[in-house]
Design a protein around this nucleic acid. Structure first.
Lengths: 112, 112
DNA sequence: GCGTGTTGCTACAATAATTGTAGCAAGGAA
DNA sequence: TTCCTTGCTACAATTATTGTAGCAACACGC
């Protein structure tokens, strides 16, 4: 759940070193985490719309992931409802946005 | 397991659209997948060394992930033993390498 | 040959995460 | 009120992951 210990040190499953890159890789390495950020890249989505965008993933995981991503400061729930990226979240999203173009090239190389 | 159907279309759990970015996000969104790529970024590692680098993750998952990453064409097993990145894998690794610097900034903002 | 150590890899049971379905309370509009 | 949406939760079934132990194959020194 990406709990935080007293000093603000993140101690996440699978990364006991405390190095932020490890905590980040662990957080993003949970199911639907990357996908959620990806689907929110353009505009905020309601929980239902997000669920639809994520191939009808079960609301249980989505809710857990959203909570984690909110605790991490990447996602926020707007006043009028709907989940959106925080400035930091948008920054993160842009960081791995080049993955899109890579994925296209990847398929053309390894796929058909 | 990132099986491939006849036409080379990847059909991965959680991404039934076939869009390569979804397949990629799903593949990378499995435990230790990102971490494995990250640990192999500098040099090839033997399975044991990789296990050590990954906080003694269980060999079961590592083996499964390594198989998936090999099928995806990101990782290969060298002749003399030891897992290393393929050219495509190195390309992918460099794609999300900026995550490192982001993670540092992220901690300084949200952490302590 | 013999041991000793490595390699990649697997079996197994216990635990944790994820799925899929159903449903809740709170709010808004008719 | 009814109808519809919002965010969110309960629950059992399924799947993934963990942790420990161990395998066969290969290379070394002896």
């Amino acid at each position: 759940m990406a709990k935080q210990t007293g000093s603000g040190e993140r101690r996440v499953r699978g990364s006991r070193t405390g190095r932020p890159i490890m905590a980040l890789l662990d957080l993003l390495g949970r199911r639907w985490a990357l996908r959620i950020l990806w689907e929110l890249r353009a505009e905020p989505l309601t929980s239902r719309a997000l669920r639809t965008a994520c191939d009808e993933a079960s609301p249980t995981v989505l809710q857990v992931r959203l909570t984690e991503l909110r605790e991490a400061g990447f996602v926020e729930l707007g006043d009028g409802g709907g989940y959106g990226l925080t400035p930091v979240g948008r920054e993160l999203c842009e960081t791995f946005m080049p993955l899109h173009r890579f994925a296209e090239r990847w398929r053309s190389k390894s796929g058909a």
